[in-house]
């Protein structure tokens, strides 16, 4: 054994040591993550209620899903969470990061305050927000509206408002993370860029447009992808906050993950749930690949 080891080159020894360290996480990933993922592909071709016999039915699960009107509504809901949530949260996060970077007094405390929601349990936070949305005399938002003389809003009970009312705490929870990443990105820009621009007579706007934003492009691509995936997988807030039934009212807030949950654990249609999981997986895969491609192009 020692003979074998001594005969190896330094490079080979290094590789073996590295692989030994990687072995544990690799085994973990293969058994806990990759195996169930591939299993999902298989289950998606079955008719199975978790306990009874498995029956192979080919692509019937997919066909049924695509024929289901509810699926298209839920898919559109999910896309709406990402389509609105991502740009809104990024814009707010950038504006806060941009100005937070200019101040020194209280900088760390303010940043910590923005970061706390990111660390808080989504369910606990969702309950608090759910309470905010209550009608008079309980809900803060309606109390504030009444002060301003604006009519009461149904929020979670409205088919048009509920989705955005649930999106708000999700946006809020992610802000801290996005702000920290944005500030790190801004700080990584060499100071001399700004000094040179200042001497050259550039205004705040020209500096923002020609220096800060282009330099933050990799940061923005990264954040876009991470939060897109986050919003596409939204679940906790919806499950906790939605009125009438989970995803209600009238399925107007239901995202894909919640639909998967219902198929699997309310209706015990494991095949259908797996098929839907595979569809979500494909969507996330495409988003990630587009990110990789954009990053490469940027380099």
């Amino acid at each position: 054994m020692t003979d074998f080891w001594n005969r190896l080159t330094i490079g080979q020894k290094l590789a073996i040591t590295a692989w030994l360290f990687l072995a544990i996480p690799l085994v973990f990933y293969i058994t806990i993550r990759f195996y169930p993922t591939f299993e999902a592909f298989y289950v998606s071709t079955l008719k199975w209620n978790l306990l009874g016999a498995k029956k192979a039915i080919g692509f019937k699960n997919y066909i049924k899903i695509f024929a289901d009107e509810d699926f298209w509504l839920v898919l559109w809901n999910t896309i709406k969470y990402a389509l609105v949530g991502v740009p809104v949260s990024m814009l707010i996060a950038f504006v806060i990061a941009y100005w937070l970077n200019e101040i020194h007094f209280g900088h760390d405390m303010i940043r910590a305050m923005y970061f706390i929601p990111f660390l808080t349990t989504a369910v606990a936070m969702a309950w608090v927000w759910r309470w905010f949305y209550q009608p008079l005399p309980i809900g803060y938002f309606n109390i504030m509206l009444s002060w301003m003389g604006i009519p009461q809003q149904p929020f979670l009970k409205s088919v048009t408002q509920a989705l955005y009312a649930i999106m708000a705490p999700a946006v809020w929870a992610g802000l801290g993370f996005q702000i920290v990443i944005f500030i790190a990105g801004i700080r990584a820009i060499p100071r001399s860029y700004f000094e040179a621009a200042e001497i050259d007579g550039a205004g705040r706007w020209q500096i923002l447009r020609e220096i800060t934003l282009p330099a933050l492009k990799p940061t923005m691509i990264f954040l876009t992808v991470v939060s897109t995936i986050g919003f596409l997988r939204i679940f906790d807030q919806v499950y906790t906050m939605s009125a009438d039934s989970a995803g209600g009212p009238l399925n107007s807030t239901k995202p894909l993950v919640l639909m998967i949950y219902e198929f699997a654990f309310d209706e015990f249609k494991l095949g259908r749930a797996s098929a839907l999981t595979v569809i979500l997986f494909m969507i996330l895969l495409v988003v990630s690949l587009v990110q990789l491609w954009l990053m490469r192009k940027h380099k």
Binding site: P190, Y193, A196, D200, A202, G203, Q206, E210, I211, A215
Partner: peptide, 25 residues
């Protein structure tokens, strides 16, 4: 006008746009 040790050239702008930055300002 100032020239910096690390040149402070903007990496995403080409040479023309770098040189003309102050004129555009």
């Amino acid at each position: 006008a100032m020239v910096f040790q690390n040149y402070a050239l903007y990496p995403h702008l080409n040479v023309f746009d770098n040189i003309s930055f102050g004129l555009r300002a």
